[in-house]
């Protein structure tokens, strides 16, 4: 419940925060990190539900295509699901890699979908670099957030 509330707060303040501190595109994807955290400590079902719910809230508040962020966060979930088979999700290095790759997958899918569905949007190379920066920063910060949040619940599923 706490993670759901935290996720909701992140979505609600994200726009304001971006206008004050750093553009959202560069910032770590905290929702993706929370999905990974739930996957690790509460299991795939809880993470899947969270990804779906947060994506839906994001869609409601966003001015983009309906369903876009629901799909993107389900892809993050799928990325984590597949990633944990390739890397060790229990060690910080593995967590960083899995979260980075999942966020990168999300960003790439975002670019592909918008290129197909939205005529007005033109992506340049800088968008790709921004996505890479966001993915790496998400991956680097993920183990730190995991350790902070796991003070409440220590045993990974």
């Amino acid at each position: 419940m706490f993670i759901w509330f935290l996720g909701l707060i992140i979505v609600l303040i994200k726009g304001k925060w971006a206008s004050l501190i750093v553009p959202n595109q560069f910032a770590p994807d905290f929702t993706a990190i929370l999905i990974a955290y739930l996957f690790l400590y509460y299991g795939p079902a809880a993470a899947g539900m969270f990804a779906f719910g947060q994506g839906l809230v994001m869609d409601i508040y966003s001015g983009g295509l309906y369903g876009l962020f629901t799909l993107l966060y389900l892809c993050v979930y799928a990325g984590i699901y597949l990633g944990r088979r390739l890397f060790n999700f229990l060690v910080p290095k593995g967590q960083a890699l899995i979260v980075s790759l999942s966020v990168l997958l999300e960003k790439l899918l975002f670019i592909i979908i918008l290129t197909i569905f939205s005529e007005g949007i033109i992506f340049s190379c800088s968008f790709l670099w921004i996505s890479v920066v966001s993915a790496i920063s998400s991956g680097l910060i993920a183990p730190v957030i995991f350790s902070l949040l796991s003070r409440q619940k220590v045993i990974p599923v």
């Binding site: 994200k14 304001k16 959202n24 508040y61 966003s62 001015g63 975002f110």
Partner: peptide, 13 residues
């Protein structure tokens, strides 16, 4: 009361 949370689209609440 709110700005677009994604940063990619430009909308307000």
């Amino acid at each position: 009361t709110g700005l677009d949370p994604t940063g990619w689209f430009k909308s307000i609440i």
